[in-house]
Amino acid sequence: MDILTEALGSMRTAYPSSARTEGRAPWALRLPPVLGAGFHVVLYGTCWLIPLGTGDGSGPQEPIALSPGDVVFLRDGGGHVLADHPDTPAVDAQDCVKDSAPPIGTLTLGGGGARTSLLCGNYHLDQGRPHPMVRQLPALIHLPTRHGRHPELAAAVQLLGIELENPRIGSTGIVPALIDSLLLYILRAWFEDQPAATAAGWAAALRDAAVAPALTAIHEAPATPWTVESLADRAGLSRAAFARRFTTMVGEPPMAYLTRWRMTTAARLLRESEAPLTSVAAQTGYGSEYAFAKAFKREFGLAPGGYRREARAA
């Protein structure tokens, strides 16, 4: 069971949206906050990213210098500026010319100086119910891919650059698939960057000899009538020791996470399948449709049928 893929899949509400940004110095682009998570990939040239607040109530931060191959992930889609220099006056993104050339649109701005080419966009993630794995991420992740760092991420960036620089047959399908996969490469690189000796939270949980098997069991079989005792047995720990360890790393007690994942699984089944409510209830560990509907409404504020109708209408 790939917990990272499952966790992100539970939050996705649509395919990512993106645009190519072409700037020639002097240039500066002000990007407003977005729903979901923002990302940037530097395909050519250099620039600066100036955070205007990270979505967690913090104020402006120090500018970040970006080089070719660098990737930036903004967990909460906070507003920020991209520029050739931190002192260049910024223009709003909506005021720039947008071309509709395939495979994605292009924003062009600036003067006649040094060229910078970026891929900018956002992943449509449900921030109203973020998975705790995503909630624990830093508000801004900067991943350089030069000098052999993060080879798989670097390869994805290189492939994107090739397809965007010289679109050919198949590019219209290849580029969105690469952008979609990029999110997994970004988060895999960040998690693997965390030193084992000092890793905390989910970065530690995913490699912990006791907590990781319990998480895998919950994700693989949410309908199983798990208890703290049965999960602790799989982890090889006492009930109390396992509960403390799980809660510290995951951010909530084992049974609370089990309920969260059952409800997350149920919501996905309601959105993406025609399964009757009795089947959804059985697949998520509830013995009756009534018990499932009561638990679901307590979690989402809507009855399962109403949730399915709203999700389909959106």
Results as ranks from 00 to 15, higher is better:
Arg207Pro: 03
Ala232Trp: 04
Leu206Pro: 08
Glu220Lys: 15
Ala221Met: 07
Leu237Met: 15
Ala212Ile: 00
Leu187His: 00
Pro213Ala: 07
Gly173His: 13
Ala235Ile: 02
Ala210Cys: 06
Ala212Val: 00
Ala217Gln: 09
Ala210Tyr: 02
Ile186Met: 01
Ile218Lys: 01
Pro195Thr: 00
Val228Arg: 03
Arg207Leu: 01
Ala205Ile: 03
Arg188Ser: 15
Leu178Lys: 06
Phe242Gly: 03
Ile174Cys: 12
Thr227Tyr: 01
Ala210Pro: 04
Ser181Tyr: 10
His219Trp: 09
Val228Tyr: 04
Gly173Asn: 12
Ala232Glu: 03
Ala221Ser: 12
Ala177Gly: 15
Ile218Trp: 03
Ala177Leu: 12
Ala217Lys: 10
Gly173Tyr: 14
Thr227Met: 01
Asp193Val: 09
Leu215Val: 03
Leu237Glu: 15
Val175Arg: 03
Thr198Asp: 10
Thr227Ser: 13
Ala200Ile: 11
Ala217Tyr: 09
Val211Cys: 15
Ala205Phe: 00
Gly173Trp: 09
Trp202His: 05
Trp226Ile: 08
Asp193Ile: 10
Thr224Gln: 08
Ala196Val: 15
Pro195Asp: 01
Phe191Asp: 04
Leu237Ala: 12
Ala232Lys: 02
Trp202Met: 07
Asp233Leu: 08
Arg207Ile: 04
Leu182Arg: 00
Pro225Ser: 04
Leu183Pro: 04
Ala240Pro: 05
Arg234Met: 14
Trp202Tyr: 06
Phe191Ile: 06
Leu178Ile: 02
Glu229Cys: 14
Ala235Phe: 09
Leu187Gly: 05
Gly236Tyr: 05
Asp180Trp: 13
Ala241Met: 14
Ala189Arg: 04
Ser230Glu: 01
His219Tyr: 13
Leu182Ser: 01
Thr216Arg: 14
Arg207Met: 00
Ser181Gly: 13
Ser181Cys: 12
His219Met: 11
Trp190His: 11
Ile186Gln: 03
Ile179Lys: 08
Trp190Ala: 06
Ala196Thr: 11
Ala189Leu: 07
Trp190Gly: 07
Ala200Val: 12
Leu184Thr: 01
Ala204Tyr: 02
Ile218Phe: 01
Glu192Val: 11
Ala217Asn: 12
Pro176Gln: 08
Phe191Pro: 06
Trp202Cys: 07
Ala217Gly: 06
Ala214Pro: 06
Asp193Ser: 12
Val211Gly: 14
Glu220Asp: 15
Ser181Asn: 12
Ala205Val: 07
Asp193Cys: 10
Val211Phe: 15
Arg239Leu: 05
Ile179Glu: 01
Leu183Ser: 08
Ala209Ser: 14
Arg239Asp: 08
Ala210Glu: 02
Ala221Arg: 04
Ala241Arg: 14
Ala232Tyr: 05
